[in-house]
Design a protein around this nucleic acid. Structure first.
Length: 475
DNA sequence: ATGTAC
């Protein structure tokens, strides 16, 4: 992206001036280098989103932004409930894809020599890969209960602990889900897929806390140097994908009938205040619950593996946050609180200290903002800031962000070399799809340090801890 | 991301 097309507000805040069909300006939070390395399509997508009806304040891109389906991945946009739209492409196909981090009472020394065996045990226990099915099989009735109940449902069925729920966005259950708005095809795809990791950039990592940046916040999060943590990155599997597919088509069909045109085919949308918009929201919220339940079931399985290998070990849920959602939230606009529908596509919520939606144990530090790196590189545990509310409706980056497309990466990296490099770095990698390792090569992603630095300099979040991987399970 | 194409 050419920096000359932007207006610099400060070193980490850049404006895309309003031109053409844009209803609001664009705004990119990143440093000069990250912006220069972003594809031109990111700028085009920021502008396209800025032209959608009812958008409020600006169309935002986070420092990890790269080209996505319609919206950039790393895109944030909020819409007025009366005049605005909801976009199936703006949420994406992997509805409520997200990260949860579990903090153990083990330290790296406790794992000495046993990381490969732990990786093997997790690899054999956790189903993963495209089309994988899990040990949990749901009847039609149970599936609907899951879609309505999310992680609350999962806990009620014996997966995990009640205490986990406080540490999940929406307290483990997204309100307003309408399972009857989810197609039978989507349900059929999901009924045997609960408790599976998926593929692509999804992973399960055993990590060690490498550095603490903020003692007070890290203390509240229960993080100490050398401590072992587990991160689970996955989403709503086939169900979310099918909901996205179903409603993109409906949004196109509806637009064709009513003579509405889209700035980009991939930005198909419907008015929030329409029947179709409400149906999509009901289905999409069911997808959020599926992702929350899925990560809850996986947590239970990880705890079982740890309990067998390390008797007496505990894994407490630090936090679970989704990064592909559209949620109704109240934000300050021009000094007035307004209900808005916030799309976060590859972007993480970042609530500052004292926010009423935070559980009491986390309120003083702000929401854990879980920023997953690529295989082999560090991940960051940031904390939400009060300033994030004024930056991008309390949002921050969600990961390192791709620097290369999957196709480019597959051409550029040999899977064997990727695996050897990671083993050399001391990361035990176990992958269901050997060839897929190319697409996930660390070199295919941006520099996580640069992304986290930019996010924190732009005050989207604040640094609390950096963790590095010991073992990585891939789909 | 994904029963990697209907």
């Amino acid at each position: 992206m050419r920096i000359s097309e932007l207006r610099r507000i400060d070193g980490w805040i850049w404006e895309v001036p309003r031109t053409g069909a844009m209803r609001v300006p664009g705004r990119i939070y990143a440093d000069k280098r990250l912006i220069e390395d972003m594809e031109d399509t990111v700028l085009a997508q920021v502008k396209n989103v800025a032209s959608l009806p009812g958008i409020v304040t600006a169309s935002f891109a986070m420092p990890d932004a790269h080209s996505g389906y319609g919206f950039p991945i790393g895109g944030v946009a909020a819409f007025d409930p009366d005049t605005g739209v909801v976009s199936a492409g703006g949420v994406g196909f992997d509805i409520a894809c997200g990260v949860r981090t579990l903090v153990s009472n083990l330290f790296a020394d406790d794992l000495a020599g046993r990381v490969p065996a732990l990786a093997d045990a997790l690899f054999s226990r956790i189903p993963a890969g495209v089309g994988s099915t899990g040990a949990v099989r749901l009847t039609a009735g149970e599936l609907d209960a899951m879609l309505a109940g999310g992680a609350v449902w999962a806990v009620s069925r014996g997966f995990g602990e009640k205490a986990d729920l406080d540490r999940i966005e929406e307290r483990g259950r997204m309100d307003g889900a309408r399972p009857e708005m989810v197609s039978e095809a989507a349900k059929a795809r999901q009924k045997d897929q609960m408790g599976t990791l998926g593929a692509g950039n999804h992973y399960l990592e055993v990590q060690v806390v490498e550095e603490i940046f903020n003692d007070a916040a890290a203390g509240l999060y229960g993080l100490h140097p050398g401590q072992v943590a587990v991160a689970i990155h996955c989403g709503s599997r086939g169900l979310g994908h099918q909901i996205g597919t179903d409603y993109l088509k409906r949004m196109h069909d509806h637009a064709a009938k009513t003579g509405v045109s889209f700035p980009d085919r991939e930005l198909a949308h419907a008015p929030i205040a329409s029947d179709l918009g409400q149906r999509y929201l009901g289905a999409m919220r069911s997808g959020i619950n599926a992702a929350l339940a899925n990560r809850q079931i996986l947590t239970h399985m990880v705890r079982e593996v740890f309990a067998e290998m390390f008797p007496g070990s505990r894994l407490a849920l630090l936090y679970d946050v989704s990064h592909n959602t559209c949620k109704a939230e109240t934000h300050m606009v021009d000094g007035v609180p307004r209900l808005l529908f916030v799309h976060r596509k590859g972007a993480t919520r970042s609530l500052g200290p004292g926010h009423p939606d935070l559980p009491p144990g986390l309120a003083a530090a702000g929401q854990p903002v879980l920023v997953g790196g690529s295989m082999g590189t560090a991940s960051f545990i940031l904390s939400g800031t009060a300033a994030a509310e004024t930056r991008a409706f309390a949002s921050a980056c969600h990961g390192a962000g791709r620097a290369m497309s999957r196709k480019q990466a597959a051409r550029h990296f040999k899977p064997r070399t990727v695996l050897e490099d990671l083993e050399h770095m001391g990361v035990a990698v176990r992958a269901h799809d050997f060839r897929g390792l190319s697409e996930e090569a660390p070199g295919a992603y941006k520099n996580i340090e640069a992304v986290a630095d930019a996010a924190c300099r732009a005050e989207l979040a604040a640094k609390t801890a950096r963790v590095r991987p010991l073992a990585c399970i891939k789909g």
